[in-house]
Amino acid sequence: MTLAEERIDRLTALAREATITGEYDRSREYVRLARRVSERNRCGLPRELKRFTCDDCDVYLRPGRNARVRLADGHVVVRCSCGATKRYPYD
């Protein structure tokens, strides 16, 4: 695991913790920083960060707190509190 991937993992954990405590602005900064590290080092984002962050407002999504998760025909629908919707198939 490269240094960039370790930093992205740590930023993901920090974003999750910030969302749990209700500090959404701090969570947004951690997510933005993780995305920037990923772009600069040409390594992909982990699946957890892709699926549990809002593409519109950059906040880390926590089901039941700031996101609604529903199951539809063969895919998962995640709606952020800002109104953005994300869909992905079952694994």
Rank of each mutant, 00 (worst) to 15 (best):
L14C: 10
G83P: 04
A67P: 08
D9G: 04
A34K: 05
A67I: 09
C43L: 11
T2M: 00
T21P: 05
G74W: 07
T12A: 09
R79W: 10
L11V: 01
L3I: 05
L61G: 10
A84K: 14
V77M: 03
T53R: 07
E39Q: 09
A15M: 04
D25Q: 14
G22N: 13
R26D: 02
D58H: 08
Y88W: 11
L33N: 03
V31W: 02
G83N: 06
C80D: 07
I20Q: 12
R51Y: 05
H75C: 15
L14P: 01
R47C: 07
E48L: 11
T19P: 03
R51E: 15
D58F: 10
D55P: 04
R42V: 12
D56F: 09
P63Y: 13
R51K: 13
Y30W: 10
C54H: 06
D56M: 06
L49G: 02
T53A: 11
P46G: 12
L61C: 10
Y90W: 14
R47H: 13
T19A: 14
L11G: 03
T53M: 13
L71N: 05
D55Y: 07
E17W: 15
L33K: 01
C80G: 11
A18N: 07
C54I: 12
C82Y: 12
R26Y: 15
V31K: 08
D9N: 11
E6D: 14
R51F: 01
P89Y: 15
R70N: 05
K50I: 06
V76F: 04
E39M: 08
M1T: 11
P63S: 08
C54P: 05
A72P: 00
I8E: 04
T85N: 02
D9F: 07
T21S: 14
V77T: 00
G22W: 00
Y30D: 00
H75T: 12
Y60A: 15
R62P: 00
D58T: 08
I20K: 04
E23G: 07
D58N: 15
T53Q: 03
E17L: 15
R47W: 10
R42H: 05
R42D: 12
T85V: 15
S38V: 03
C57I: 05
V37A: 00
A72Q: 02
A15I: 01
C54F: 14
R7S: 05
A67W: 08
R70I: 11
M1I: 08
R47M: 11
L71A: 07
